[in-house]
Amino acid sequence: MVLLQVDHISKHYEKDKPVLSDISLHVQQGEFISIIGPSGAGKSTFLRCINRMIDISSGEIHFDGTNMMALNKRNLRKNRTKIGMIFQHYNLVSRLTVIENVLHGRLGYKSTFQGVLSLFKEEEKREAFHLLEKLGMAEHAYKRCDQLSGGQKQRVGIARALIQSPKLLLCDEPIASLDPSSSKIIMDHLKEISTEMNITCIVNLHQVDVAKKYSDRIIGLNAGEIVYNGAPKDLLEREIREIYGANAAHLMMK
């Protein structure tokens, strides 16, 4: 089943300077996709176009049977709850506790009144603890987020995205600020989420080897265009050079 259908989208802030040009992509439910490419290729912009954090200049995006471009503000909010997002810098409210941050993921389902007064249902709280348990973070539930390590913060970020009960996870360089062992934990969790919970993951990555290890499919982006779209095993030296440009010989890779 096609979950996300991106057709010929373009984005430019200034004329003649496209950040994304004519990108089309069909994503199946439960698929794990990595997007690789040099800095400034438009990876982050592309992810944010999918949940309309950034509005595209032209093209169409269909997600879970709805035309994302036609949504008004209220329905956009409703649809965003079905798309979780994970960030390089975790973007947690550091003065609040872990559990409070996780419950922020439920705000999309709340009215203004319920949200402002933090009226969360018991089952939502139970689900939050359940998710933290699953991610190995239950013992830290009442700690303030500024006391956590990077890997722990990212797991809170994942819990916050999962409590939305999303169909799609957008991960914007989730391991770019993490050490190798934390990176592995995070990537393993993401992989597990896509296989066991059947949630589609689209992950921006800088590490080609990580992308090859975890992905079902790899997208190569260069200067706002898709230059590679295929299986990890077909991603060889020549393709990598095409994605990263002439300097690929200097790429630090195994």
Binding site: N51, M53, R77, K78, R80, T81, I83, G84, M85, F87, N91, L92, V93, L96, E100, H104, G105, L107, G108, Y109, K110, T112, G115, V116, S118, G157, R160, A161, Q164, L170
Partner: peptide, 17 residues
């Protein structure tokens, strides 16, 4: 951005972040 991406509205963002 994180809260907005999760579907939170303006008042939610003000009170929770």
């Amino acid at each position: 951005e994180a809260l907005r991406a999760g579907g939170a509205n303006w008042w939610h963002i003000v009170t929770h972040a």
